[in-house]
Write a protein that binds this DNA or RNA. Structure first.
Lengths: 341, 341
DNA sequence: TAGACCTGGTTACCCGGTTCAGAGAGGAAG
DNA sequence: CTTCCTCTCTGAACCGGGTAACCAGGTCTA
């Protein structure tokens, strides 16, 4: 049971291969009657174009690539990537584009994967995520000449097209809110320091606190364990913070547990803010005040841009909506003892 | 800057295309000296085989497919799939296999995606997950004649190869443990009832409780909200359960919050068990007793089997390790008032 | 009535790599 | 000195589509 080809259809319809090709691609050159006959036969024998044969003629691969360079244990925990992927998928599926995915262990391997996929014409373009400061991948991808959309800050994307959201804005909004509530010692449990968006948040955080609050930033690897450890250390310090901003929700939840374990009541003694909202933020007690972003939409925009790029359009950097603060039960006025200190 | 082809290499080396093909594929038919020269040139100009051209000759696509049929919001929350995928990736990456991923909205679309990928010879095989009772996809895939590994119970996999783990065993172990702790009213907040593994757990749960405890099962859609609602209802009933088993960890965490909100202390008044362990289970307070499975390993085994199947080997159904109970702080002896009831 | 122009179809060749049937060259055996 | 074999290497065909160029016949226009 071989796969049917256009030659089979041509034989059945009593026309040449070319007529079949034109008919099935909606090109002019065949009568409507013949076209209908050919389409009916194709339908009947379940013909599908062989993507390899098409690709050979320089056609699109109808596929884009994404290599993820994070350890599996973090990937599994952070909803961010799955949400991003499902957003990307939503757009790709409409255009029958597929997503080629590979988990890699380091940047060198990641560049190699992209080079291979592109070299083998398996993909028409790719996404680049988790930008590092002075990222080697940017240069490599620029050299390939492949359409790429960087999901990250344009300042580090070189000549590649990028999509980003203003994390600084979100930081300022959050700090402003906490300061208004009377908080003067605010800590941030941040993610990996080598990531560009961590650096952006770090800087914005320091600036936003300038003159109104004492900022403390602790870097972690995004896992709950490190989030818990950082929280324990922060809450044990003599001038402990009255508010903590966590760079993801899993760490915020971990921090919340540590606070409970240390008899620090949230939000009475400590306010907690989580970056990136997920159902998780809402099921814990108290529900977490969170920086909400529509991540699937973010992915969808990135996908649209990549497809436009592949179609040959020029795509300027695009700033997506910044995360917005969604106040819930985990934040409140700074504790009274603050004034005494 | 066109991609180099074997013709370019042939021209440079002063030999025919055929010699180049043989040389680069390690086939006999060229002298070692020529081979070395050709390989060196290929290396130098950065040649990569065009996968399309290879596929055209009936070669493998070096790619397998996975279509996920779950709403995005659930995908993002459940670590299961990301962990499964990273396990699959680990094996695929070693053999330079890629994973083609698509999120679909229903089974019909899913079958269509597989049919297209296979028809277009984009993939050499696929995984099938989230089996339903009397699943239409099984028949469709059998008809395609494509190598498929079903991640689910063999009884519903038809003639397709399958990999599964004995959820019944895990249920029995958990119920036995709870009964030994004195629990007599045990509830289960289960997942989607149409999924085969939910049905398997349902049955095993009913059987395990036979004669030793009163089982109650509530079905949900795996989200925290429904988990919370189910918990609220269970804890409000006059003969409320003293232990609840949740089908995933997000619902268990939600349930834990509901218990706290209702002043039901865990584990004093209520024991909680989560199915599938994740860092999340360990960061909440108290840490959750969980049914631990090595999901990445599960995915890895599935991938190995699929590759074997593609290689033409016959692959019998494979039973992976059952989930093992990892007791933590959320389970304890049944409350004293139990004896009065 | 001749030339230009559509219509519906064909032939020929390309894409990049694989495979198969030989063709020379060189060496060993008879 | 043949004959035969082996080792290298090549030309041609092929995989399944796409595309350019062309051609026969009918229609329109000058």
């Amino acid at each position: 049971m071989k796969r049917p080809t256009i030659a089979d259809i041509a034989a059945r319809a009593g026309v040449s291969k070319v007529a079949v090709s034109y008919a099935l691609n909606g090109q002019p050159g065949v009568s409507e009657a013949t076209r209908a006959r050919i389409v009916a036969i194709a339908e009947e024998i379940g013909w599908r174009p062989n993507s390899a044969a098409r690709a050979l003629n320089g056609a699109r691969a109808d596929c884009v690539g994404l290599a993820l360079c994070r350890p599996a244990r973090i990937l599994g925990v952070e909803p961010f990537f799955m949400e991003l992927i499902s957003g990307i998928e939503g757009v790709l599926a409409d255009r029958s584009y597929a997503l080629l995915l590979q988990v890699v262990t380091d940047h060198q391997q990641e560049s190699e994967v992209y080079r291979r996929w592109w070299g083998e014409s398996r993909i028409d373009g790719a996404f680049l995520v988790d930008l590092h400061t002075s990222d080697t991948r940017v240069g490599e991808l620029e050299r390939l000449g492949m359409p790429v959309v960087v999901i990250g800050h344009p300042s580090e994307s070189g000549s590649l097209s990028s999509i980003w959201s203003d994390d600084g804005q979100a930081v300022r909004e959050t700090v402003g809110y906490l300061v208004a509530l009377g908080h003067r010692r605010i800590a941030r449990v941040a993610g990996l320091p080598e990531l560009v968006h961590t650096a952006v948040r770090d800087r914005a955080f320091a600036e936003a606190c300038q003159g109104v609050a004492e900022p403390v930033t602790v870097h972690t690897d995004y896992t709950g364990e490190e989030g818990a450890r950082a929280t324990r250390r922060l809450l044990s310090s003599p001038d402990r913070p009255t508010a903590i901003i966590y760079d993801n929700d899993i760490m915020a939840v971990a921090g919340l547990s540590v606070a409970q374990e240390m008899r620090v009541e949230v939000p009475r003694d400590l306010s907690v803010v989580a970056w990136d909202d997920s159902p998780l933020s809402q099921v814990v007690r108290p529900p977490l005040t969170a920086l909400t972003r529509d991540i699937p939409a973010y992915g969808a925009h990135a996908a649209q841009r990549l497809l436009a790029l592949i179609a040959g359009e020029s795509v300027p950097p695009y700033e997506d909506q910044a995360a917005a603060l969604t106040p819930r039960g985990s934040t409140g006025p700074a504790p009274a003892w603050m004034s005494r200190s």
